[in-house]
Nucleic acid binder design. Structure first.
Lengths: 104, 104
DNA sequence: TCAATTATTAAACAATTATTAAAATGACAG
DNA sequence: CTGTCATTTTAATAATTGTTTAATAATTGA
């Protein structure tokens, strides 16, 4: 994963509404949740949600799929993993590591 | 760790210069690196570096300590871990997990 | 003390961002 | 088709952000 992509992904998550969206989607797993349902849960206007979905998708952290009238959004776990790996790369020059990331 | 803090931390990392600073500091480990040395390595003006250090420190991701004329900056691994944990919390509702974060 | 070095602060500006309201698209049921 | 529901797009505005330059601290050695 490249630095520029990571900056985009971090920027996508660095906003309260989008962080909330992403966390909900993380809990949902690969099946995701419909746009309207997310909007209602988070009490955000549809237009504003669309703006934020766009940022998250563009950053690659979220994917969408249409199902009838609904659009489902889901977390892209691979992208997330790539970002986390980038952030923790080569920590402590390989010495006793100070960043023992949790195992899921 | 609270959502607001996490947003601040993500925003701190969501900028090319600051991401580069942080990654260098991750490699350095707890001893850190002097401000001027970082500025030179990244080819960024001291004033601009100071601005970015400020953001990183305020976000809790970096700590500073004075040593003579020099100010050393170092990554705060605990804060980083807190942020990563927050992002991966409750993934996939506990089912077969799609976000197996790397073990360091 | 004086001058040199290291780093921070302040002010100004251009660029980006989030939010809102209104209009427009796309999908489906009747 | 027509109307309705779900979502997106557009345009406008307020707020935040990154960079530069110049000025200001803090530390040290001569």
């Amino acid at each position: 994963m490249e630095s520029e992509q990571v900056v985009t992904a971090l920027a996508a998550l660095a906003q309260p509404t989008r962080l909330a969206i992403f966390r909900l989607l993380v809990v949902c797993g690969p099946q995701g949740m419909a746009a309207g349902q997310l909007a209602e849960k988070l009490d955000v206007s549809p237009a504003n949600m669309s703006f934020h979905f766009n940022k998250l998708c563009h950053a690659g952290l979220v994917v969408s799929r249409q199902d009838g009238r609904f659009v489902y959004y889901a977390a892209n776990f691979a992208a997330m993993n790539g970002m986390l790996a980038f952030l923790t790369e080569n920590c402590c020059e390989g010495n006793a590591c100070a960043m023992p990331v949790k195992k899921c």
